[in-house]
């Protein structure tokens, strides 16, 4: 029984696929059936396919096609394919063709694919400062 419990834990840890982050401990996945009402803080990668009503702060953030963020996103690099309502701040910001962003995008490098929707300003910044959350 308890072996089963551990096996359930290993599902996420041993998941194979197109995971660009070999350090699994740093990889957070918010699937489409999960809603988080509150803030997310990490020094790793966050993949949002679900809904976040709150602010997201991570090293790298990906908002999937089904992902929705109602709040600000601060990261070193952000890739958006879904919906974001709130300010976005990162050195590298990339809007995919299915992206829908309502809010200012503070960036150092900005890539917008044809088809992406953006409502707001896109101020350039020399460098976006992001302090590590856990002081590492």
């Amino acid at each position: 029984m308890f072996r089963n419990t551990n096996a359930a834990l290993d599902i996420g840890a041993g998941r194979s696929g197109s995971d660009p982050w070999p350090g699994r401990a740093r990889h957070t996945v918010i699937r489409d059936d999960l809603t988080i009402i509150g803030d997310l803080l990490t020094d790793g990668h966050i993949e949002v396919d679900g809904r976040v009503i709150g602010n997201v702060n991570g090293r790298t953030v990906t908002v999937g096609e089904n992902g929705q963020v109602e709040g600000s996103i601060l990261a070193q690099s952000i890739t958006i394919h879904g919906t974001v309502a709130g300010p976005v701040q990162a050195n590298q910001v990339r809007l995919g063709k299915s992206a829908r962003v309502i809010g200012n995008i503070f960036h150092n490098e900005l890539t917008i694919e044809p088809g992406a929707y953006h409502e707001g300003r896109r101020p350039w910044r020399p460098q976006i400062e992001r302090k590590p959350i856990f002081g590492q």
């Binding site: 401990a25 957070t28 999960l34 997310l40 990490t42």
Partner: peptide, 13 residues
């Protein structure tokens, strides 16, 4: 697949 809150993530909410 389940949603994963990784070891370095803190959720306030």
């Amino acid at each position: 697949e389940p949603s994963v809150i990784s070891a370095e993530l803190k959720v306030i909410g």
